[in-house]
């Protein structure tokens, strides 16, 4: 019961933060709302018993990626970032019914899925030896190749980001000469 209450609190916090991300126009506020949403989602993970994912959510998402966004934001001049109309209102009005429709469809899918899903199988096993350990052991045995590929993708992404974002002298032909 206590768990459920905590979960509801975190959930409400996460939904409200998400709405803040979407609705606020000042990018700095948006980043703060995003940070809040990420922390609340980490809370949801903890409540669900996924301590490892929750910790990684806090460390990587809430710290590293958010800071990265702030870095990028500082590269953009303020007068650009603080533009008045930061939303497409017509699109929003048109898209809203479709979002509702998506909710309805997702609701049907989830209901069907929950009805079709089997009961708990490994709960006891996980509780006995601890969640993080099980995740780690399975990650490094069964999903080892996927893990290696993801690490390669990270490397590629890093190289790509550096290549795309670096200064190229010939683009500033007016300045360098």
């Amino acid at each position: 019961m206590f768990k459920l209450i905590v979960f509801i609190i975190f959930s409400a916090w996460a939904v409200i933060s998400s709405l803040g991300v979407v609705l606020f126009s000042n990018p700095v506020y948006v980043i703060l709302w995003l940070l809040s949403a990420l922390i609340s989602i980490a809370g949801i993970f903890f409540v669900a018993g996924a301590e490892l994912v929750g910790a990684i959510q806090l460390i990587i998402y809430a710290v590293a990626i958010a800071v990265f966004y702030i870095f990028v934001l500082t590269a953009v001049p303020w007068e650009k970032a603080l533009k008045k109309d930061s939303h497409y209102r017509v699109e929003g009005v048109i898209a809203f019914p479709f979002i509702i429709l998506l909710y309805i469809e997702m609701f049907i899918v989830f209901t069907l899925g929950v009805m079709a899903s089997p009961k708990k199988q490994l709960k006891l096993f996980i509780e006995r030896i601890g969640n993080a350990e099980v995740v780690g052991s399975i990650l490094f045995s069964k999903y080892f190749i996927a893990f290696e590929i993801v690490s390669l993708v990270l490397l590629m992404g890093m190289i790509g980001a550096v290549l795309i974002g670096r200064k190229e002298s010939q683009t500033y032909d007016g300045d360098t000469s």
Partner: peptide, 11 residues
């Protein structure tokens, strides 16, 4: 859904 909506409306 909220994220999707944000993707559609943010400038």
């Amino acid at each position: 859904g909220i994220g999707m909506f944000g993707l559609i409306v943010r400038r």
